[in-house]
Write a protein that binds this DNA or RNA. Structure first.
Lengths: 137, 137
DNA sequence: TTCTCAAACAGGAATAATTCTTATCTGATA
DNA sequence: TATCAGATAAGAATTATTCCTGTTTGAGAA
């Protein structure tokens, strides 16, 4: 049951379990796109009409800190939240501004190996991600 | 002479040459970091104290459209402008939030070749960039 | 179960980056 | 040098995000 999974994930990550956190968590698990805080807010209101936008922002930030979500900023400067935790790249369509995940373990391995073999001077790599810009056909 | 180069580049790109555009152009050519619009504004005021912030924003945007600059957004959602035109990657320090260019033609070639050999379904790649997060030693 | 309290929440005010608006000015061309 | 489309200055407006304050709630103790 989805409520149980959410509860487990949230408490496991060291956060107090609340109804608001549960609905935000669930909203992100089912979202295929990379929602903004406003998009999460709109979706979450269906399940909890009295939630406030500030709570959504704070909850998303807490989830990022707790390692449940990834956050990045799109080209127009808006924060996007991403339920996937494995490293993956993003396809950014320059025509429609849509963002899609692009998972390619082979490519990730290639990059990881390259950066291990060729250390960057004075820099310790933690994470690598690829932004591929172009157009959806 | 730097004024001549600026004039050429600006008119070549199809934009009308103005004093404001020249000082913005020159400010970016000499900046090693990836300035924000505010940083450009501060620098440009030395050469032209009466320039307005709105003009700086508009000019930077025009330069991006004309292909003289690259634009991206940093993790805190602020726009950064980048005088380099060749594809290159960014090193993002998670401790200090500093951004540095990382140019590595070998790595770029590797990526380009990989993406040519392994087409992404329904997507036409225009540009690839790597965001490498980590810590400066 | 009820009590207690640190943490979370709602609601809205405040802030910061960016865009827009309008009246004025300027560069390129004739 | 006169013309005019496009560029600029100044500041108002907008948008995303953070902050503040009083109220509520979840989790553990008694």
């Amino acid at each position: 049951m989805i409520a149980e999974t959410a509860r487990e994930k949230i408490t496991e990550s060291g956060l107090k379990f609340t109804h608001q956190r549960m609905v935000v968590y669930n909203a992100l698990q089912v979202s295929a796109d990379h929602p903004t805080a406003e998009m999460v807010f709109a979706k979450v209101k269906e399940a909890n009409p009295s939630i406030s936008l500030g709570t959504v922002y704070k909850t998303l930030e807490n989830f990022v800190k707790a390692g449940l979500l990834q956050k990045f900023t799109d080209d127009s400067g808006v924060m996007r939240f991403d339920p996937m935790l494995e490293t993956h790249s993003h396809l950014y369509c320059t025509a429609t501004q849509q963002i899609k995940d692009y998972k390619n373990p082979e490519l990730e391995l290639l990059l990881k190996k390259y950066l291990q073999a060729n250390q960057i001077e004075d820099f310790e790599v933690e994470e690598v991600s690829l932004v591929i810009k172009g157009k959806t056909k």
